[in-house]
Amino acid sequence: MNELNPLEQAVYDLIPRGIENCRKFKDLNAHIDKRSFYYIINSLRRKGKVIGAIRGKQGGYFVATTEEERVIATRQFEAQVKEEMAIVSAMKKAELEEIS
């Protein structure tokens, strides 16, 4: 697994373990802007950290600690990939418009 840089480690340490402890970005006191936070979260995920995000009022971020939590954490990405592949397929099949 890739080593984390100090900022990645600091953000990773802020994220609670277990879905029952998930917390919203605004409650994590990350002291970075939201865009940077999302970038770091995705970097952590690419480095093999299983970080889930639950949408909605009761949602937030969590580090998966069980196989069930891993499934929950990856489900949204699988749905997103499926939707994006459907878009790619439709675009490849579409007729191109001619410029007049």
Rank of each mutant, 00 (worst) to 15 (best):
R75W: 05
A86Q: 13
A53W: 00
I99P: 01
M1Y: 03
R46S: 11
G59E: 01
I32W: 04
E69N: 05
H31M: 05
P16S: 08
A90W: 02
E8W: 07
R45M: 12
T74I: 13
K49R: 15
A53E: 01
D13P: 08
I99T: 11
T74Y: 10
I19H: 12
E67H: 09
K93V: 04
N21C: 09
D27Y: 06
R75D: 13
T66R: 07
K26F: 04
K49Q: 14
R35E: 12
I19G: 09
L14T: 07
K24I: 01
D13C: 10
D27M: 04
N29S: 12
R17F: 13
Y12L: 15
F77G: 12
F37R: 09
E95I: 11
L44Y: 06
N42Y: 07
V71K: 15
K26C: 03
N29P: 05
K57Y: 07
I54Y: 02
S100Q: 10
G60F: 03
I41T: 07
A73L: 06
Q58K: 14
R70Y: 00
I40P: 04
F37L: 02
S89I: 03
I19Q: 12
E95N: 11
G18M: 11
V11I: 15
S43F: 01
A94Y: 03
E98Q: 12
E84C: 00
G60Q: 03
I41D: 06
V63W: 02
I87Y: 04
K92V: 06
L28H: 11
E68G: 07
I87F: 06
K82P: 00
I40G: 07
E83R: 03
S89D: 15
Q9D: 13
Q76I: 14
D27P: 04
R55S: 06
P6K: 13
Q58N: 08
A30C: 14
K82R: 11
A64K: 02
E98K: 13
M91Y: 08
G18D: 03
F62W: 02
M1T: 09
S100W: 09
S36W: 03
D27T: 04
K24H: 14
P16K: 12
M85S: 05
E98H: 10
S89G: 06
F37K: 10
I15G: 09
E98F: 14
G60V: 03
E95H: 09
S36V: 04
C22F: 05
I41S: 06
A73Y: 01
N21P: 00
Q9S: 15
A86K: 10
I15V: 14
D33A: 08
E20K: 15
E83D: 10
N2K: 13
N21M: 12
F77A: 13
R75L: 13
E20Y: 08
E68D: 07
G60W: 02
R45A: 11
R17Y: 13
